[in-house]
Amino acid sequence: MATHADVHDHYHPPGLQHQFEDMGQQQESASIGMWMFLVQEIMFFGGLFTVYLVFRSKYPMAFAAGSNHLDVAWGAGNTVVLIVSSLTMALAVHYAQLGKRMAQVVCIILTMILGTMFLGVKSIEYAAKYNDGIVPVTGLNRRTAVSHEAGTYSLPSDPNMQRNQSLDAPASVEQNKGVSGEQHGAEKEHVYVNPTGSFIWEDISLAQLAEKGNFLTSAEKIGYYTNGQLDPHKFRDKVRIFYWIYFVMTGLHALHMIIGLGLMAWLLWKAWLGTFTADYYSPVEMSGLYWHFVDIVWIFLFPLLYLLGRHFAGGH
């Protein structure tokens, strides 16, 4: 309310909202509120982690196969980037508490650069998945017309392909014209034979290995076998579940990063204006909590998605 100053004539520090009595109360409210929000976030991601655990314990080999195909180097690099960004964020809070304007600004800018680096790496990884045809949503992978020279595609009788073809028929025809016309020559060493942009997975070596070693669980046998035979299509579907979980989890995490960067931009502007002082720094502190939370989520995502299952031989 604009008129609160008229109603209450006691002293109002800048940044104190009308519903609070003093800065301490406001600070405490913001802090509890942020923690409650983070609890909410934990439950949100918790649902996803549950789904991950259920399916990982159901199809460990498929998950290992999918996991092995992820690039650990990028993932590890990103982990370092995020941890460093948490440090710069913590420093930003520290300098805000001391009321040092320029130091804050620098730290916030550093945090933003590191956050952007993380997202950049993530998009490189996503692009690789797109090129490899392992985005689990049909139509979101690189499409190429079936070329006669490279007609070595090994899963022609895949019913999934047929279904997708009938679904996407008009779109894929259009798309194919453009892609095959422009890029056919340039794609010498990488031949993509995926006219519908569907999910492709041919590597069943891990499942074969497990079969030989006789350590497939009964749930896996149900999941991978057709009439007692290892079925590449069924194995592929389970790998697809892994990639789906991978994309949803990292995607939601990236969304949180983007929101975090938005927050940082706002903080940067405020800090530049010199809003935050030793008395009033709770926005920086709260944004810091949020940033650390997003960081911690990644600390869990990285081993679960990239590292678990890597001890199995094979893969890439």
């Binding site: 789904v51 259920v54 399916f55 159901k58 199809y59 689990p136 949503v137 049909t138 999941g223 069924k234 579907d237 389970k238 697809r240 579940i241 789906w244 979980i245």
Partner: peptide, 15 residues
């Protein structure tokens, strides 16, 4: 529902 991934649909391994 949009992408038919198979997290809940038993026909492709879901639960």
């Amino acid at each position: 529902r949009l992408a038919q991934i198979g997290i809940f649909d038993p026909a492709i391994g879901g639960d």
